[in-house]
């Protein structure tokens, strides 16, 4: 649902999407360190294939996005993660469009960064086995909120094509309820697990 296809949006909008993406990408990549690369690659692989997992909801079909999960796990590097995943999904699976990779990266990547902020603020710096439940809770919130935000971004952009904002929002959010729930639980569980076994991952 959140992959916008070619020819739907006006030129200024997808062009603007590319511009925003270029700026955030350049900044994120300048922050990338050698030890981040393996984690970045593994999470990107997960985000890349997650869009193939479909659930049929009512009149439509929805798939996983995992942008909140990427945000929590990668911080600012979630943006290059989502961008690369989108490029591969576009060319290998035909999801979305070529011109809209930029705007789609904004739709999923910016909520991922917001999810990271929610998680960081909520769970605090000292994540470890003893604060596992708190980290889990905020991981789950971040995982769910990121999907909702991505859908709001989508609805806001579809406004320009003449769709009703409220109508689109209600439609996409209601069909994505299972996705939001599963991604929240998934992110929460993984965060809890990592807080127990490898809390160092969060201390960056």
């Amino acid at each position: 649902m959140v992959h916008i296809s070619d020819g739907v949006l006006a030129e200024w909008l997808w062009g603007g999407g590319w511009a925003v993406t270029a700026v955030i990408l350049a900044y994120a990549l300048s922050k990338m360190r050698n030890e981040d690369v393996p984690r970045l690659s593994v999470i990107t692989a997960a985000v890349f294939v997650s869009s193939l997992v479909h659930i049929s909801v009512g009149p439509t079909s929805v798939h996983f996005i995992l942008n909140g999960f990427a945000g929590v796990m990668l911080g600012i590097l979630a943006y290059p993660c989502i961008f690369v995943a989108l490029v591969l999904q576009c060319f290998l699976f035909g999801h979305g469009g070529v011109t809209t990779i930029g705007i789609n990266a904004v739709n999923m990547g910016v909520p991922a960064l917001i999810a990271y902020l929610i998680f960081k603020t909520g769970a605090g710096r000292g994540i470890g086995p003893e604060t596992k439940n708190r980290a889990s809770l905020f991981g789950a919130i971040a995982g769910g909120v990121a999907v909702v935000l991505a859908l709001l971004f989508l609805a806001a952009e579809l406004l320009t094509t003449g769709e009703e904002f409220l109508e689109t929002t209600v439609l996409v959010v209601s069909t994505h309820i299972p996705i939001i729930a599963v991604e929240a639980i998934f992110t929460g569980v993984i965060v809890g697990f990592i807080a127990t076994v490898e809390p160092e991952l969060f201390r960056r």
């Binding site: 990107t44 294939v49 591969l88 290998l92």
Partner: peptide, 13 residues
């Protein structure tokens, strides 16, 4: 596509 994607990711990494 999935296999190719993983290949690209490994290369990019």
């Amino acid at each position: 596509g999935i296999i190719a994607g993983f290949g690209y990711l490994t290369g990019l990494a």
